[in-house]
Amino acid sequence: MVEQIIMALLNGILLGGVLALLAFGLNLIFGVVKIIHMAYGQFVMLGFYFIYFFYTAWHIPLLLSMAMGIVAMGLIGILVQLVIINPLLKAPRLNQLLALASLIIVVENLAQVIWGADYRGIPLTMPIIQFGEIFIRSSFLIAFIGAILTLGLLYLFLNRTYLGLGIRAVAQDLEMAKGVGINPNVIYYLTQATGGALTGLVAAFFIPIYTVHPHFGASFTLMAFVIVVFGGMGNLLGGFASAFIIGIATSVTAVLSSKEIADILALVLFIGMMMIRPQGLFGTES
């Protein structure tokens, strides 16, 4: 039992890294474009299918398929901005929310029509690493390391480049950002492309871990939401920390009881947080 809990703890940390990546994307989009991307987890599902499709239908080598999946999702991010968000930029927030919720219906059913309801995956055998009684799947480890590296690169991008600076400026004060000479449209597209590409990347990390089906994304949307709200919406660092907290909490709870109870726990935390501390665990007032 102790080993199981330790393993759950480890898995929680490892998956927490990937979740941090997802939360980062959601947070970035929320912070910059000021929209709550209801279909964000569904994009992971779409990315998964893209990679699967490139690999199985076009027989493109796996790593290249993954790269193409990431690019495709980046493009889809841009498309979302162009077709859905731009027309709704001045609409009430709720309309943006509902538009993205309808996108869930479109995306999930698109997957259903194209690939059917069956579980699909790319069978890969990845070694298992063993420390005494504790087993770690190398696929988890790769995903974790990849996610942390990506987050590091994103951090550098945001802090060391003009475009990154533009993103941070638009997130803080749109009008003034325009006033200092930033074209917000470029920043919006860039943000959506980054957010989209991140879902593709997360999908790539998930390839050796999961199989995909049309409703695969819903739980990741949920997870990302919980993390983002927990860390404070728009707060990138808070999101990073809370990804691990939530990752560990749900993974351990799942071992102790069941997957549903773990999800319920996460959601109850989410609801409580929204009510009592909408600025998040690490946020400051206002």
């Binding site: 859905i84 027309p87 609409a91 538009a99 309808s102 219906i105 479109v106 059913n109 698109l110 029509v113």
Partner: peptide, 22 residues
């Protein structure tokens, strides 16, 4: 077999609706 298709049409018309006829 095309159950999803009706949902796609549905989703797209909703999107259009929210954008053009809120």
């Amino acid at each position: 077999s095309f159950l999803g298709l009706s949902q796609i049409i549905f989703g797209v018309s909703l999107l259009l609706m929210i954008i053009f006829m809120p």
